[in-house]
């Protein structure tokens, strides 16, 4: 098979961008939290898996379609994130990054192992959206679940971007991200904004988890793989930078698609890590971005 045909390249690119949109949704949430409170949340992947199991439960118990489970999971995860921030994360805001890494590492271990205890290590999926569409004009095959997951991710990420840019709360979030003390002086309830931010990030992770159920099989341990990819993405895109995470996500999706197309899917799994290491070698200083200024 000649892999350099335009049709195949297009196929790989579209597939990569759709997968990348899901990464972008997940990574933007992680980066939002980092931007606002300088906390690196190692439990972000487990929050995604919480959304995935919620969608799986709603589907297998009530037969609820993942697209209908989406708002439910987002609300539940928002509330979970809101109170996680209040009870746990708020205590480590302003402490050194090591402390936040260790506490969220502990949190991810708890969530993952409680997940294993309750759901076992079996892989699951939600077979709700299936099949593929053939677009004749472009000579392109689109897998339905991947297309839906990609489009939902793009819409949600764009929605959050719009929210941050134009809503009153969104502006407050950006203000706290830029300078918490000045924001406080301006009358912003910084503690509440942090709770909203963590809730929002958790809701985004939950949404990514719901969409994940339709395209991958997952287990409680899947979160760890994704969180590593997210770190590669935010290091590439710039830590704390929302748009950077979006671009980094799309880039990783594309890179993985082409590597799995030309080499193998096993190598594609290593792409995120290779990219991370490569960026760390080539531009270590430039990557510190906002983290250094803090």
């Amino acid at each position: 098979m000649d892999l350099l045909q335009p049709a195949i390249l297009l196929q790989l690119a579209i597939g990569g961008l759709l997968a990348g949109a899901l990464y972008a949704l997940l990574a933007s949430g992680l980066n939002l939290v980092f931007g606002v409170m300088r906390v690196i949340n190692l439990a972000h992947g487990e929050l995604m898996i919480a959304g995935a199991f919620l969608a799986w439960l709603l589907y297998s118990l009530l037969g609820l379609h993942p697209l209908l489970a989406l708002p439910v999971a987002m609300v539940v995860l928002y509330i979970l994130g809101f109170y996680l921030q209040r009870l746990l994360i708020e205590r480590i805001v302003g402490r050194d990054e090591l402390t936040s890494l260790l506490v969220t590492y502990g949190l991810s271990i708890i969530l993952m192992n409680v997940g294993l205890l309750v759901f076992s290590a079996d892989f699951r999926a939600v077979p709700a959206l299936q099949g593929a569409v053939y677009l004749e004009d472009l000579d392109l095959v689109l897998s339905k679940p991947r297309a839906v997951a990609g489009i939902v991710s793009i819409v949600l990420t764009a929605g959050v971007y719009w929210f941050l840019k134009h809503s009153r709360t969104g502006k407050a979030i950006r203000a706290v991200s830029e300078h918490a003390e000045v924001a406080m002086i301006c009358g912003i309830d910084v503690t509440r904004i942090r709770m909203v931010t963590f809730g929002l990030a958790a809701a985004m992770a939950g949404a990514a988890g719901v969409m994940l159920t339709t395209i991958y099989s997952f287990s409680p341990e899947t979160g760890a793989d994704f969180v590593l990819k997210c770190f590669a993405i935010i290091v590439i895109g710039g830590m704390g930078n929302f748009v950077g995470a979006l671009l980094g996500g799309l880039l990783l999706g594309l890179a993985e698609a082409f590597v799995s197309g030309f080499l193998s899917t096993q190598w594609a799994e290593a792409v995120a890590y290779l990219l991370l290491v490569l960026v760390l070698i080539l531009r270590p200083a430039g990557l510190l971005g906002k983290a250094d200024a803090a």
Partner: peptide, 12 residues
């Protein structure tokens, strides 16, 4: 690199 980057690189 600063601590967090090292931790992240070692994570994988």
């Amino acid at each position: 690199l600063h601590g967090p980057y090292f931790a992240i690189a070692m994570l994988g």
